[in-house]
Amino acid sequence: MNPAYSVIFFTTASGAGYGLLALTAFAASSHGPASSLGFALACIVLSLVLITAGLLSSTAHLGRPERAWRAFSQWRSSWLSREGIVAVVTYPVALAFGLVWSGLVDMPALIRPLGLLTAAMCALTVFCTAMIYRQLTTIPAWANRFAVPGYLLFGLATGAGLLSLLSVVFGRFQAGAGPFQVVLTMILIVAVMALKWFYWRWLEMRPTQFTMAEATGLGDGVRQWEVPHTARNFIMKEMGFQVARAHAQRLQRICLLLLAVALVSMLASLLLPWSVAIAAITLLLAAWTERWLFFAQAEHVSALYYGKTEI
């Protein structure tokens, strides 16, 4: 599949934003009021800016962005519609949480329920995003059990990196929150590394699901002889994207290397708190690389009509 940068930026940025917001809200639900107004505002504003930038970028992928409001109507059948609705509903919930948690509205009793609700809405939004890909049986690289945990874990890991960074900036990290944040982020990084490693091995080894023989009904001896058009059409541009195997493997190694750097940086932050900045950045770069590969390595069954013999 063509790796459209608007969609890659959207899922990477809003994934990190929802991860940061969910972890903040979840932590707040047990810890109570924010340690400082500045820290609370930084967490809420950064997460909402990332989420909003991502969502706006996703509308850049649309042919008719001015009609985007129509996408809220088909929640009965469409995961894309559900994602849109849940994303919009998350805003007032997150704002209400931000107001009570930061202390701008003095209602501490609401921190716990609103924190849990905000975290759940974040998880639900990213789940809906993942399901848009998971549901497509036309793309075996997506329609499998790795897709949903991949989106959720990358969102949490990148969010944890950003939360640790804000925590250092506002001195929370140095004041005692550090070890817990380091352990949490490192667990998430290791989980992401393991998941992607298993996914990439599975992608390489998985048995053939669809063939040109079945697509055309012409039997095993079928071979492409003449293409229907001399220029590349939409199907070839959108679905026919090919990435060389060696190139993909190199990017997989780069992604794992970035995650390993993030892991070491988190560990080092116990001595040098500011090294979490390296972890936060390398996590985002790793998420970007992984998302590009997620598209570039995904083959669509319609390629079987254009010469691909098996998928």
Binding site: W225, V227, N233
Partner: peptide, 8 residues
Amino acid sequence: RIHGYEVH
């Protein structure tokens, strides 16, 4: 779209 396939 009209494809051409060779079938053996």
